[in-house]
Design a binder for these strands. Sequence first.
DNA 1: TCAAAAGTGTTAGATTTACACCCATGA
DNA 2: TCATGGGTGTAAATCTAACACTTTTGA
Lengths: 224, 224
Amino acid sequence: MTFYQEHSKVWVSVDCIIFGFDENKLKVLIGKRQMDPGRGEWSLYGGFVGAEESIDEAAERTLSELTGMKKIFMRQVGAFGNVDRDPGERVISIAYYALINVHDYSEKLRKEHHAEWVYVNELPQLYSDHNEMVMKAWRMMKQKMRTEPIGFRLLPQLFTLTQLQRLYEAVGGEEIDKRNFRKRIKDMDFIEKTELIDKITSKRGASLYRFNKKAYKEDPNFKL
Amino acid sequence: MTFYQEHSKVWVSVDCIIFGFDENKLKVLIGKRQMDPGRGEWSLYGGFVGAEESIDEAAERTLSELTGMKKIFMRQVGAFGNVDRDPGERVISIAYYALINVHDYSEKLRKEHHAEWVYVNELPQLYSDHNEMVMKAWRMMKQKMRTEPIGFRLLPQLFTLTQLQRLYEAVGGEEIDKRNFRKRIKDMDFIEKTELIDKITSKRGASLYRFNKKAYKEDPNFKL
DNA sequence: TCAAAAGTGTTAGATTTACACCCATGA
DNA sequence: TCATGGGTGTAAATCTAACACTTTTGA
């Protein structure tokens, strides 16, 4: 109770990089700041860390306030702590990225929060160091996706192999050979073919697949 | 200046995981806490983030207070922010790992700070969540070492190929085939053979090598 | 009937792994 | 002379990358 007092406290916030996948592109959710400083600038969604919550809980709260969703997949990106990063006061911010299925997010809620999906490779200039946060989050997510099947969070429960391939292409930033991709997927027993056929995006129809989380946990060999 | 006031401030600290390499093992620098709470427990070195310094600067300051060294290689591990992680007050801590050459660290300074090198795989129980920090730092460092030649920070400027191999074995946690290792090293033009011979660890003598940072920057192909 | 997306195997090249012996020297 | 660590090459196996045509069906 003694030596803490000699030091100064600071505000700590969380900022969320919410990734979505739509129209074969990777998107991020941003909004125009509603308050000063920086009113009207594009910005990530964030919030202050309360006295009674962990930083992870603050991020979960922020995510669910914005999206109405619970148990969103989320990982810490890191702490951003330049003295002048926030033009108003000294605020240290901890960035988190989150993966959601764009179509699970209610359009109504999105509009209420004036949130917009933008393509991650056409990102406008954002408030403070938020561009840097997005880029670091994207790099980390890309890296993680090579070794863990986290991408399914961005897709509907049922998806075609072409959708899955487009997702990996969008995240990785380069084209993938169709046959090689499908070969690798075939080796993963936790990506299960269903009896269902998607007839929306193709005339011929494409088999729908599903990610079996339990099967993955029993035999986690993933390498893309 | 307005909406910040509604929120509470917290103390923010940095904690340093200082890695060293000695006796063919990876080590971490820890010390017994000199203050309450937790007096006498093994702990990482840390310090509070001041109002006028960035979090990176706070980590650099902490590192140089302890070691007397400047420009230490250092990377952020992440923020640790459970409400009760510090038994005294709410403190959010940002962990950094650092790589130093054990023999560059003055024994005098080390003793003055009551700092001890311990093997990273024989880590005692540490204060608060510091074990978790070390483990995460080790994982991240291991990962980084696969794709960037950061390991040289742990070695003297001149080193033998066996030393280099032992380093990679210690960090990675598994043995490496000598011939395959040396083959890979030969392909890296930025690891330069010198005319010098080390006669200390072997009777026959082993060639000493050096890392050429400039050559690496011009042709950064590294893959271990 | 044709445009559009689905689906399917093979081969060459590159990379990775496994493996064992001789050398030089100081004690 | 011998124990110790230094130094070297090859072959099999695995993995990766490149590549093109047929199928189905709605418009």
